[in-house]
Amino acid sequence: MAKADAVPDVSPTPRHQHLIVTVYGLYARSQDGTFAVADLIQLLGDLGVESAGVRSSVSRLKKRGVLVSLKRGGSAAYKLSPELEDVFSAGDERIFAPRRAQKDDGWLLASFSVPEAQRHLRHRLRTILTRVGCGQVSPGLWIAPGNLADEVEHQLRRAQLMEYVDLFKATHLSGGHIDEKVGQWWDLPSLEALYTEFLARHQPVLQRWEKHEGESESPELLKQAFADYVPMVTQWRRLPYMDPGLPEEYLPDNWHGLAAQELFTKLHALLGPKAQHYAMSVVASN
């Protein structure tokens, strides 16, 4: 996350639209990317969202091109836009299978120049670089761990912006400690605050579920797993994009991102299958 850009909304109480996107990303792709409106209302109702809020949020997502409306078995339904399938697939890897960079990975440099007449593309470029986890060295020079090279190039090509960008693999040769430079290129304190908030909100959830270990998976227990899991994933899923996955040697002491990643991994393993079972049971019953 570059210092020049505002921190994305990762509030502990996710917006309705964010919850809907998470539900689609987790469960709709096994249903051809489609949910009947009734299914969506029930699932979001289990997360505390009233039906009017679901319909309003779905309408906004439709206007943004995230969802498209259709009929399924004579009933109203919404489907993920086919254009976003590769976005969700890439997100699966970034969110559920992250890889922290090693020192030997080196650095990726992205140098860009945009004509003044197309300055709107400059903002788009910076937005993409920020979302993929790049830091800012100077206005036209951005940096990321070398292991992100393929992803950065893919995102820039997808946005048809590569003609303005040159990418380089690099080694840091200047004097001084690289961790000091890292603190200039990325806003680590803001990211640390978000990880701390994630831990504060979801550590108690893990502790509560550890007490249920060994219990039979009753319908109510599965429903509670769904209600805990989806907001947790919703809060988490932006963080791996904001965090470049820097080598541990370059991170501040007691970096909470490592503990937050461990917590997410445990909750995903514990609650993910239960939440999946519940969501599919709702879809099958309607």
Rank of each mutant, 00 (worst) to 15 (best):
G175R: 12
E151R: 11
T196L: 15
L206Q: 12
V182N: 06
R157F: 04
G135F: 00
R131E: 15
N147C: 08
T171Y: 07
L199C: 06
S138W: 07
L206T: 07
L148G: 03
A193T: 13
F198M: 04
C134D: 00
L199Y: 05
E180I: 05
P204F: 05
F198H: 00
E180M: 06
R201H: 15
S138P: 04
F198N: 03
K169P: 01
K181I: 10
L129W: 00
S174Q: 14
L167M: 08
L141E: 09
Q203L: 15
R158S: 13
A144W: 00
W185Y: 09
L199A: 04
W186Y: 11
H172R: 15
S138C: 05
S174K: 10
P204C: 08
H172I: 07
P145Y: 01
H154V: 09
W186P: 00
F168V: 06
I143M: 10
Q160K: 13
V152E: 01
T130G: 08
M162D: 02
L188Q: 02
R201S: 14
E163Q: 13
L167D: 02
G133H: 01
T196N: 12
Q184D: 13
V152L: 03
L199K: 02
Q136G: 05
E153W: 06
A193E: 12
A193R: 11
A170T: 05
G183R: 08
Q160A: 13
G146E: 10
L129Q: 06
A200Y: 01
P145Q: 02
L161V: 03
